[in-house]
Design a protein around this nucleic acid. Structure first.
Length: 264
DNA sequence: GGGTACCTGCGT
DNA sequence: ACGCAGGTACCC
């Protein structure tokens, strides 16, 4: 599932191919992309140069020459494929951008949940989105103040993109494990020191997703390699810190995995 | 705060 | 053949 780290890595791979290129055509290949991007918006985007690709949370912003933007969101399993424009489309291609150098960027998305939308210059396409987790201005005190306004389970609050941008189901569970915080803890009962620990844990969990795969990383209690998960999806397996069986519960129709031994 | 829709592959 | 998974928008 693409969360902040996977989206960031996808953008880094894509940038060399699209920055500076002109969009020659946009093909909408599925009802989902036809709904999100009507013909008038396709016409507005075609012919423009892509100046840059930026990320906000899990959103990808294609900055076009006239100041408007195409904004992509991978949702559950979107990804980019880059290839020659005359090659067969990849399986599950839902949208294709033809570039002026003969290449084609395809949005590959089996479940067709991903969206690409167009936004006029001056419009904020990500209004209401919370701070970036790695923004140095996002301090533990600000994080704690945001949590203090919420009574819901911390697991749900971490997923709320208005509180923090880019954390999804996987990294929320991972961060709570790193911080030793129980997922059902009411957010407003997390004090300054635990908030600071949790913000560090969010950053650690996201960093591991951004890291070179297979790199060894260590905490005080554990050693693991990057992209190895501590709790997510490990129902019934032993906790890597204390050995207790990882449990799975459901929060608002979404699985949460945690260790009852070391998350309080 | 919960419920539903969107969509398709996959596990059962 | 059935039903679940999941991020977000939109319903109340």
């Amino acid at each position: 599932m693409p969360e902040l780290p996977e989206v960031e890595l996808a953008i880094r791979r894509l940038r060399p191919f699209v920055e500076g290129r002109v969009l020659r055509a946009v093909a909408r290949l599925h009802p989902s992309t036809r709904r999100a991007l009507p013909p008038a918006h396709v016409r507005a985007a075609v012919g423009q140069r892509v100046l840059a690709v930026a990320r906000r949370g899990k959103y990808q912003l294609f900055e076009l020459a006239r100041g408007d933007r195409l904004v992509a969101h991978f949702r559950l399993d979107g990804d980019w494929n880059v290839g020659p424009a005359d090659a067969p489309l990849p399986r599950y291609a839902r949208l294709a951008l033809a570039l002026d150098d003969g290449r084609r960027v395809s949005l590959v998305d089996p479940r067709a949940f991903a969206t690409v939308t167009w936004h006029r210059a001056g419009e904020d396409p990500v209004a209401g989105l919370g701070p970036e987790p790695f923004d140095p201005g996002f301090t533990p005190a600000r994080f704690r103040a945001a949590l203090a306004r919420r009574r819901a389970a911390i697991k749900l609050v971490l997923l709320d993109q208005r509180v923090l941008a880019g954390v999804g189901n996987i990294y929320a569970a991972e961060a709570l494990w790193h911080a030793g915080v129980h997922p059902d803890t009411p957010a407003d009962r997390i004090g300054p020191s635990r908030a600071a620990r949790l913000l560090d844990a969010v950053r650690l969990a996201l960093s591991r997703g951004l890291d070179e795969p297979g790199r060894v990383f260590a905490t005080a209690q554990t050693t693991a390699t990057t992209h190895e998960l501590m709790v997510y999806g490990r129902d019934g397996e032993p906790c890597r810190r204390c050995g207790r069986r990882i449990r799975r519960v459901v929060h608002g129709a979404r699985g949460t995995w945690y260790c009852a031994g070391c998350q309080r």
